[in-house]
Nucleic acid binder design. Structure first.
Lengths: 226, 226
DNA sequence: GTGCATTCTCACCATGTTCTAAGAAATAGC
DNA sequence: GCTATTTCTTAGAACATGGTGAGAATGCAC
């Protein structure tokens, strides 16, 4: 399912070419031929990227950008500027545009910039997520608030139980040996039997779900998303 | 006129590249090659953002951050950390860093994070929230007027009680250990048992509400909004 | 110095948590 | 199907933790 790109460009011919090329690449597109129409479409629907021509009749592209940035959403905006309009580029970047490309442009270059912007955006939103929060399927572990929820329900855990689960959540889909778990959760200086791990895994299974932490016979346990 | 960015980075080459790139983007820059120099520059001039390398010879980047945060100014700090230094990241965020980026990084990504941080900052200061006022649910703590109200009612607290509550209010929904609390409220040079914290939590619970500050067994306490 | 408010220490108790150990159940190899 | 190995389950003993009240120490105002 393609990402959605909004094209705000007054020259019908260019707009049409952009639309066709982008659709050919698998994106969904929307077109507006003026700044005001662009803003309306921007507000009405959800977009992953906006291609914005700076030279628009009536409301200028930079004005459009300003209004877009005034809203909460920070959808990436790629500016289309005239070759030598340096001031436009600078102003555009200052207003929060993510990148610009000068007209006339090679389609290939535009596509590359779009790909980079979208890819980058994805990474950014992923990494900017709360670093204390781990999510595996229906399971949510917040290591700072020390809260755990399973299928939307909050679950109360003891200290050990929490630390064990947090370790699993930080290493989802990885088979963890009892030794690894003991080292990480109980500490490298822990003596005693590895059976504690079994017992605590059981506690977690009781409080959460039997399926969540699976046994890998002869090796250890894995947290799999339910 | 560009925003001012202070770069604290010991590797000359990296520092130089950062400086050039940032200047190209229109920022004003300052460079320090050690933690101590960085702190001096930080105090001498006004900065909009600080790029801080965690791995510094002599005074560690986290120490620098700690001292920066010990002052009133809350200039945004962006940490440069090694790829797998998870503990540094967490420690950094705990100390009040606004974001981090792992080395080696793409210039584009760094620039984007700088833009985001500065933009966010601007928005935040525009909103001009009273920096002395903390509100958590029905609780209101004004650290300058030293006033506390709970469910609209004014509450009288002693000095210690107030400082403890203010610390909780400044870190809502975060589980705080007794050690953290002792360091912050009683001072790092406090001797004596951590049981004082328990006692004062009890005082607060008596004067406010039993539910407000919750015990997290084996860990510490959390302030949750009632 | 006296009186009062505040801060802190201490020790007990109830309760919650962690861990051990041993038999039951499940699984894999032959 | 039998045996050996591994995992699950259970109960309870040992331990740790936080709540609590009383009072000692401290600071402060008059």
């Amino acid at each position: 399912m393609g990402e959605r790109i909004l094209i705000i460009e007054d020259e019908q011919k260019i707009a049409r070419v952009l639309e066709l090329e982008l659709q050919f690449e698998g994106y969904e597109t929307g077109v507006a031929h003026s700044g005001t129409d662009g803003l309306i479409l921007y507000r009405e629907q959800q977009w992953d990227l906006i291609l914005l021509d700076v030279m628009l009749p009536g409301m200028n592209g930079l004005d459009v950008l300003k209004r877009i940035r005034a809203t909460e959403y920070d959808t990436p905006v790629l500016l289309l500027t005239a070759k030598d309009a340096v001031s436009d580029k600078v102003a555009g970047l200052d207003l929060g545009a993510n990148d610009y490309i000068t007209k006339p442009f090679e389609m290939e270059e535009l596509l590359a910039r779009i790909r980079v912007t979208l890819r980058f955006r994805k990474k950014e939103t992923l990494e900017e997520a709360d670093p204390y929060l781990f999510t595996v399927g229906q399971l949510t572990v917040h290591t700072q608030m020390r809260e755990v929820s399973w299928r939307g329900e909050q679950v109360e855990l003891t200290k050990r139980e929490f630390e064990l689960l947090a370790y699993f959540a930080a290493h989802p889909k990885q088979v963890l040996t009892r030794e690894q778990i003991l080292d990480a959760v109980w500490g490298y200086d822990y003596y005693g039997d590895t059976n504690v791990v079994d017992v605590y895994v059981r506690y977690l299974r009781q409080k959460l779900d039997t399926e969540l932490i699976q046994t890998v016979r002869g090796v250890g346990y894995v947290l799999k998303e339910g």
